[in-house]
Amino acid sequence: MAQAVGERVGASANGANVAMSIDHVTKYYKTKTGQVHALEDINLQIKQGEFVAIVGPSGCGKSTLLWGMSGLHDLSKGQIVLNGTPVTGPRPEIGMIFQEANLLPWRNLRQNINFPFEIKRKKVGPYEDRINQLLNEVGLAGFENKYPRELSGGMQQRASIVRCLSYDPEVILMDEPFGALDAFTRDEMNLLIQKLWMETGKTIIFVTHNVTEAIFLADRVVVLTPRPGRVAHVFDIDLPRPRTIDETFSPPFIEKVLEIKDTIMTGVYTPRS
């Protein structure tokens, strides 16, 4: 199976610039109860401007893979190459969006958005217009002085999206960002992400356990097997854009959902005739 995936990816890599290449990534980590084999020989190539979703059963290492891409975690074997340079630590080209909004509760919204600039010792000035435009776009204009506890869960996550996009990273890694939100807010956020992605053309890698969300957003959906995580199959999603929430109830969409769910359950892809 892994070989078949390699061929597929190799073919697509010829078409456009590869933003990120994941080569033979294996990860073990130690816990109190012993060693865990989280990832086994993951190979994947992600094109510039592509939207890739990673799904899999819980504990399959999909978050571990994403944290490896971010440079926050070390790998046991293999390497991740971003724009031609192996990732060995956090990189300025990468922006990360976390589970829950992860805003700093002692800073108001505006100060939270300025946080990356403070750490990077960059002036906010040249990005001021961009930030205000983003705040407008996500509907947070006028909330700049509010503290996180005064904002709803959806507003907090929108703020964290603005924080991530504010400094204009090329690659955005999203780690189950909407898992804690209710279904309606999640739909709203997915529409927003699709819109922002279509406007900015960023490369987005999106980890989720929600198959519908993955298909709705992604160009390709990568399914991982249970631990140790291997690539079970990579699904191309050819649905036209912009996609609507209504389409997620259409028969071809549901067919895809079932196909992917089946692959997650069995760890093997078997085409539904």
Binding site: I94, F98, L104
Partner: peptide, 11 residues
């Protein structure tokens, strides 16, 4: 989580 956030910006 907050430390990871700062580290992701290279803190």
């Amino acid at each position: 989580a907050k430390i990871a956030l700062a580290r992701s910006y290279g803190a």
